[in-house]
Design a protein around this nucleic acid. Sequence first.
DNA 1: TTGTAAGCGTTATCAG
DNA 2: CTGATAACGCTTACAA
Lengths: 372, 372
Amino acid sequence: MATIRDVARLAGVSIATVSRAFNGSSRVSDETRRHVHDVAARIGYWPNTAARSLTTSRTLTIGVLLPDLYGEFFSEVIRGIDQTARAEGYQILVSSSHADAETLVTATRSMRGLVDGIIVMAPHEGASRAVTQISENFIAVLLNPRVAAEGCPSISIANYDGAYAVVTHLLKQGHRVIATVKGPAGNVDAEERLRGYRAALRDAGVDPSTRWEIPGDFTESSGHWSARQILRLNPRPTAVAAANDYMAVGLMSALRDAGIRMPEEMAVTGFDDIAIAQFLSPPLTTVHVDAYGLGERAVRRWLALSRSGENGTQAGDIVPTQLVVRRSCGAPRPQEPEAPPAEEGAPSRTAHAQTSRGERADSDVRRGRNRM
Amino acid sequence: MATIRDVARLAGVSIATVSRAFNGSSRVSDETRRHVHDVAARIGYWPNTAARSLTTSRTLTIGVLLPDLYGEFFSEVIRGIDQTARAEGYQILVSSSHADAETLVTATRSMRGLVDGIIVMAPHEGASRAVTQISENFIAVLLNPRVAAEGCPSISIANYDGAYAVVTHLLKQGHRVIATVKGPAGNVDAEERLRGYRAALRDAGVDPSTRWEIPGDFTESSGHWSARQILRLNPRPTAVAAANDYMAVGLMSALRDAGIRMPEEMAVTGFDDIAIAQFLSPPLTTVHVDAYGLGERAVRRWLALSRSGENGTQAGDIVPTQLVVRRSCGAPRPQEPEAPPAEEGAPSRTAHAQTSRGERADSDVRRGRNRM
DNA sequence: TTGTAAGCGTTATCAG
DNA sequence: CTGATAACGCTTACAA
């Protein structure tokens, strides 16, 4: 690898001049700059980022720590982080598979010197605390943390509100016996959604029964298997609010096999509003979660802290959710498929039609859906 | 941030000793080592990774460049890369949104000094060439590149074979007029799949007609809209092989709305075998693509090259695909939902039931499917 | 406008 | 076993 010294030698200038030529608008004559760049291009030189950040003590990189890197939700969050960061001149260093506090700490350490701070998705109590500890002199933003404000700024999702809204909607349709398929135990989102579900029932004068709360783990399979238990309940529920869309998919598949008509005999709702939700049969009523926006906010928050210097206020920011009514809940609403209206929010993705795989080709399809 | 010097001073030793204490098994007395670690822990010291890699000229990091970071497929590829790399003591530095050659080059440059090499997903011709140029003294592996061997080792997917297999399967069911919904123009996978589709028809004595090749862009919407054109064809196809699962989802949704029974009036197949494929109605016959394995192989290949020193052989490795027969193609095969059999291959994911979102909770559900 | 030289935080070499 | 000290590749005062 060519170094700055090689360029200096070949160009017949000092290394300082080469450095200046590469760092934009310092005091260098246009002629020398051009010459230096020519030589550099010829021998394939480009500044070593590690060395550079060692002297400047700025890496222009944000570390991103995730429990896992899987599925539509996470990729969407990362996309939000990536695009927002990039637009501000930052890169991101992603590291996943950090469920417990220990691996989280390890990962954070190994990022030392490589990042100016981190954004951590910490669904576990111990984890968020651990990060908070490490993060002295280290700007950190927590994403959807178990504990709202623990010395760290945080961004969360309005899980409770979303669940409350969708269940209330079912109640308005006249349903009284409404089951739910829960998410995995210990999962923040799952717990918040369950709280919202119960509260909505209670506020409508319906006594929530734990018998209506079927265990699940966010997988399609668990949704599929939950059908058996739901159909066995007496009285049989007329509606099921699944804690996420994947489980709703599995559930609907099983109900269909059992000959249950939806929504007439059983209304079903999901949570997350994944891309295929509108193409299910019947199209799935669900709660839209703006994963991209979550990532975007995290970065903006991080940048604000970074620029202001301090690790600052620890106020918790909450990203709202949106009820999306389609046909699976039985509410009258025929329109489909949904047109992609121009929407506020994230910048549209570029060059997607050219992208290589089974991913969607443009963001409008993903991000612009009819909301209610 | 505490440095090695702070620790040395407080521990009453030289910085060399501190360094040794942190670098495992050098010659340091257990007592000093313990002491040093105690002091370090007390003041929150941990070696600066950038500085370290500057002297060692090894970063133990692999850069990953993607055209985009979106959808099930990419996250699965990255997961394969991440887990494999981690198991070998490497981290990954992900950078996405690199559709064209220019941003790809920029990204590669900005990784200089931060990574020991890169894995690039380069669906575009210019892009892969550009990377090959840059990658002197730089170990690079191309993922699913447009051009197989251009001086760089590469890993690809057996798109052609997969498409050939699924179409042949349809032909065996007696179908003669088989349409396809294509992927975006210029997309490697899409083009290879189209080739396989045509070849299968031809080999069965059926003349492929471009009228049967409906444009699409891998999105659910495009699949949805393709239905209109398919139903207008005369003679009307009795089967459609969509270039990916998402389009199959959209297509099936539209066909159902049009009152077409599947598979009786119209057989439908997809490509990719996304998680929900088996929960569609009818369950989708498709081609399984081992995205995780793709990432895993890329890393193994990279490591092999890294250890052997050279940028080495440029032989193209190809990851096979698997036909997965379910009910949407009309072939007799009732069983469902599919049990998760123990499978060869990737290590199972850990701690997923605890993971925070709508992603699946365990890999068996994802990775172990019935194959035929 | 350009050059010299002192760091940035480590590791590695070579003495002790 | 431990301690100086010279790199690593770069930026940035300070001088010229």
